[in-house]
Design a protein around this nucleic acid. Sequence first.
DNA 1: TTAATATATGAGTATATTATCATATATATA
DNA 2: TATATATATGATAATATACTCATATATTAA
Lengths: 111, 111
Amino acid sequence: MDKFTNENNINEQTYKDLDEETLFVVSQSFKALSDPTRIRILHLLFTKEFSVNEIAECLKLRQSTVSHQLRFLKNLRLVKYRREGTTLYYSHDDEHVINMLKQTIEHALHH
Amino acid sequence: MDKFTNENNINEQTYKDLDEETLFVVSQSFKALSDPTRIRILHLLFTKEFSVNEIAECLKLRQSTVSHQLRFLKNLRLVKYRREGTTLYYSHDDEHVINMLKQTIEHALHH
DNA sequence: TTAATATATGAGTATATTATCATATATATA
DNA sequence: TATATATATGATAATATACTCATATATTAA
């Protein structure tokens, strides 16, 4: 087919699907915010940094549960930490994602 | 304990956890956007409405896969449809969520 | 070096999610 | 009414996820 005779191409809509990497990054970002435990952890970190044990205490979660979820969030670079002795203080590290979470919580609270 | 003698309450931080319903609504909203197939469907619907079969064709998905995912999205009121004969045309139905998806795709594409 | 404390990790289990097949339902038309 | 077409649904199987326990690692102080 050439462009002069292919009538079917006139007004043809060619849809450009999302590429695989974008799809992966986007889905992972939202997956991070799709779990109640991770939401609670990130929500706690809205105000200030907390150690792993403090998070566990505040939210009534096992230390290992918190640690596993923090690893998940750290892999996605949604949280970071600083060390002080044996204690690691975690804080949030992605303005875009944190803002989405804040907005959606507000949205949920007022609807 | 009363408020005059409880020294421990001085400067105590009382953290208010998210209530269960908010947690559920927020996690469900993000869960909708955490799956590559649902992202592709919603992304396709950015521009205009599509029938179930058109979505399946465009995205190379089975009709039943599309139908199941549309039900999921419809339950969360993220899509709506109008009927024309036996054909159902689906379109997006939640500006807030769609905007989050658009923003996050942009964010992913430019980083 | 030993003990104490904070955190991370591996394995196992329970549950949730997704895609698929087969089939049911609904609408339009002959 | 019978048929064709579009969509929905139920059951199943494969995979992914989240929590828990037990234990490993890392840091500090005695």
